[in-house]
Design a protein around this nucleic acid. Structure first.
Lengths: 252, 252
DNA sequence: CGGCATCTGTACGACACCGCACAGAGGCCC
DNA sequence: GGGCCTCTGTGCGGTGTCGTACAGATGCCG
C-alpha cells in the first residue's frame, strides 16, 4: 500500500548534506501527482521545483499539429523545473505526469535562495542538468535510427528504473503519444514482447516479467544512458542521523 | 578575404562586461578549425572551452553501428565544452567541425576560475545551456515527425544563421551524416530546393538564394528555436570602451 | 590534355511506419 | 445481468526512407 512519501525517496534530495537538507526540507510540500496532470505548459513560468518520489513525469514537445514526442523522463532521480535556475524562467516543453504518485515541491524563491549560495546544491543541479542533456541527445538519435520495438523496450526500462515495482499503469494510447508513434505500433510491439513472455499486458496494466531479456532487446541507447547517469549521479543518500540500518527490533 | 578574427565575433564573449572581458581575453587563444576536425570524442575530458567566431561545430551522437545524428549546432552564438562546468567533465557526444573557420579557446582552468566567481559569466553559461537544451529537445521531436525535406531546410537555416554569408561548403554526403539519413535522401531534397530556385548547388558548395522561401518550407521547429534563442540570448554586445554610439555631444 | 577520384543524380525492390476502419474483449456502472 | 465505454487486436493500401547498384558530371593534378 502507498505509504506517506518522504523527501529522501528522491535521490537528489537524499544526496544533499544534512545542512542543506535542514534548510530546504521545512519548505518542501508533498503533492499528489495524478496520471495526466500537467505541471507546466510551454512558456509557463515555473513557480515550484518539483521532486518526484514515486511518480514519473514526462517532458514532451508538442507540435502545432498536436503530434508530440517525449524528450526526457523525470522520476525520483531528478526534478521538474530546470528553467528556474537556468535563467530562462520557462521552456518550450510540457511536463505531464506519466505515472501517478507523489512529489515534493519547493517554492521557486526558496529554491533560488539555496541555489545562489553557489554550493553543493548548485553543483548537484548542474550535474543533473547534464544527465538530462544526455537523455535528450540520446532520444534524438534514437528517434532517428531505432525501431519502435527497440524504443518501447528502452522506454519500459527507463520507466521501471524510476518505479518501486515492476508494474506500470498506462494504456497503449498513452505510450504511443509519449513515443510519438501510432497506437497500433505500440500494440504490435507490445504483442511481440508478450508472446516472448517478457511483459504481461492487460488493459492499461503492464508488468515486466523478464527484465534481462528486455535489456537484450532494447537498443544501445539504454546502456549509454544508464552508464552516464550512474557516472554523473551515483545514488548515495546521506544518512539523516546515525541510522539503525537493520530493523529496529520492535517497530510499531 | 578572411580577416583575423576577434573574440567579440562570438556573441557570448561579446556579451560579457568589460571587467570579465578584461580578465578572460588575455587567455584566449585563436585556433583554426578545419573542416572535419574533431574537438572531442565521447568521453574525452575537455581541456578547453572553444568559442567559435566564424566556424560551426556539430555535436553528434555516434552509434555502435557507425550511424550518427547531430543533436545540436554551435556557432558564434555559443561554445563547445559545456561538460567543463556541468560537472561531468565529459559527454557521450562527438564535436566535429562542420564549417571551417576560427575559434578562440580558453584553458579549462581559466574558464573555471571565472565560472566559480558565480557572477554574470555563470549566468550567461546557464542561459546558453538552456538554449542548447531547447535545441536538443526540438531535434528529438523533429527527428520523429518531420520529413527529410523539412529537416534539411531547418538545418540550412540554422547553419546560415551562424555564418557570415549565404554560402556553405559541404558535400551531400556530410550533410546526410549530420542529419542521420542516406546521402541519396539529401540529393533528392536538395534537388527539389534547387528546382525551386531556393538554393544553388555545386559539388560541395551550397548557396542560399531565397531565404524567405526556405523559411516557408521548413518545419515549425526552426521558428521555435529562433524565438527561444532570441529570448534567452539576445545579441547585445557590450561596448569595448565608452563608445560613441551616436556622436557624444557632451559625454564625459 | 587526359586520367582519376570525388561528388551528384537515378532507379528499383524492400520494409517500417502511417492513417483509417472495424471487430473483439474487458471492465464498470446502472 | 445488461449496456456501454474503453482498451486492444487485426487488416489494408499508401508513403517515406532505406540499401544497393550504377551512371553521369565535375574538378583536380600529373
Amino acid at each position: 500500500m502507498p505509504q506517506t512519501p518522504t523527501p529522501r525517496q528522491n535521490h537528489l534530495l537524499a544526496a544533499l548534506s544534512p545542512a542543506v537538507q535542514h534548510r530546504l526540507f521545512p519548505y518542501l510540500e508533498p503533492v499528489p501527482l495524478p496520471l495526466g496532470k500537467v505541471l507546466h505548459e510551454p512558456g509557463d513560468v515555473a513557480r515550484y521545483a518539483v521532486f518526484p518520489t514515486d511518480s514519473i513525469v514526462s517532458l514532451v514537445c508538442v507540435m502545432e499539429s498536436g503530434a508530440s514526442a517525449e524528450v526526457s523522463l523525470v522520476g525520483n532521480d531528478g526534478l521538474v523545473g530546470l528553467a528556474l535556475f537556468m535563467g530562462g524562467g520557462s521552456t518550450p516543453s510540457r511536463a505531464v505526469v506519466q505515472s501517478a504518485g507523489f512529489a515534493y515541491r519547493l517554492p521557486a524563491a526558496r529554491f533560488m535562495e539555496e541555489f545562489t549560495r553557489h554550493g553543493e546544491f548548485l553543483l548537484l543541479m548542474l550535474r543533473y542538468t547534464q544527465a538530462l542533456i544526455t537523455q535528450m541527445a540520446q532520444t534524438a538519435v534514437c528517434n532517428r535510427h531505432h525501431s519502435i520495438d527497440q524504443h518501447l523496450c528502452r522506454w519500459l526500462l527507463q520507466s521501471m528504473d524510476r518505479l518501486p515495482d515492476n508494474r506500470l499503469a498506462m494504456t497503449q494510447e498513452l505510450i504511443a503519444h509519449m513515443l510519438g508513434v501510432r497506437r497500433e505500433g505500440i500494440t504490435d510491439a507490445a504483442s511481440k514482447l508478450q508472446k516472448l513472455g517478457v511483459i504481461e499486458y492487460n488493459r492499461g496494466r503492464i508488468t515486466v516479467l523478464d527484465r534481462p531479456r528486455l535489456e537484450q532487446l532494447t537498443c544501445e541507447c539504454y546502456a549509454v544512458l544508464r552508464k552516464e547517469t550512474d557516472r554523473l549521479l551515483p545514488y548515495v543518500p546521506r544518512p539523516t542521523n546515525p541510522i539503525p540500518l537493520s530493523d529496529p527490533v520492535e517497530a510499531p
